[in-house]
Amino acid sequence: MGIIEYARTSIKENWSLFRRSRMGLLGLAILAFFAFLALLAPIPRLIDDMYHPMVGVDPEISYSTPPSLRHPMGTDFMGRDLLSQFLSGAQIAFAVGITAAVISVLIGTAIGLTSGYYGGKVDALLMRLADIVLVLPGLPFIIVIAAALGKMSIWIIVLLIALLGWPGVARVIRAQTLSLRERPFVEAARVAGAGDRRILLHHLAPNVLPLTFLYAALGVSGAILTEASLSFIGLGDPSVVSWGMMLQWAFTTGHTFRAPYWILPPGLAISLLSLSFYLVGRALEEIINPRLREP
């Protein structure tokens, strides 16, 4: 009777409803397509060293070239293969987006549950903290931190995105917990001898799980955009090839208007992938919201 099992039954129950949402299915299809690309990312460098997205350079090319047989998506300004960079970008987008969203949703859910369940001083303190983080301007704040730290690692970026993302989740989960804890099944659990821990983990957490899923999906979308923005303005992790990084290289080497084969794929991919998570999130919301109202 663990939380994993609840997740499994909840997914099974909701899939039939999800299937009816066309936008949700479209989102899921785009998402699956990029996930497939991300899985392909390690392959090019196995074929030939020059296809390594970061350090591989075609020995015969030293400027940006349009798509060819050797380089299906062209090369960048120093002869690196754009296709392998693009695939690596997909991998990074998933890693950054999902990790940041999962961390922030976990923090937000834990804080929302605690705050809503215990109320009183604990609640006041945690919600003040959430307010403070909520009013921090996200991107400028990360830029200041990045400037202070010098060069960024991708995991610091993920952590910063996650630490800024939890308050919204915490507020919604708290509101949900406030109404759940008044439901008679909570009192029934107490009659059976359940303590706070059991009530929180077994009775309240599974009932906020659908909301948690929804926020995770929406969070991924935001995190992908934030990482892309950071990389584009030159504050990304220089040891990692992300889509934002590809755009930045094109921009700083003056290829923005000369090499559409270079800037279009990562630009479109960023928009499409974050859109896809957003669509999936919205479809989930449509499933969850009418159900939240019913007892």
Binding site: M1, P184, F185, A188, A189, H203, P206, N207, P295
Partner: peptide, 8 residues
């Protein structure tokens, strides 16, 4: 309808 946890 209310005293049993809907997810149990």
């Amino acid at each position: 309808y209310e005293s049993l946890n809907p997810r149990f």
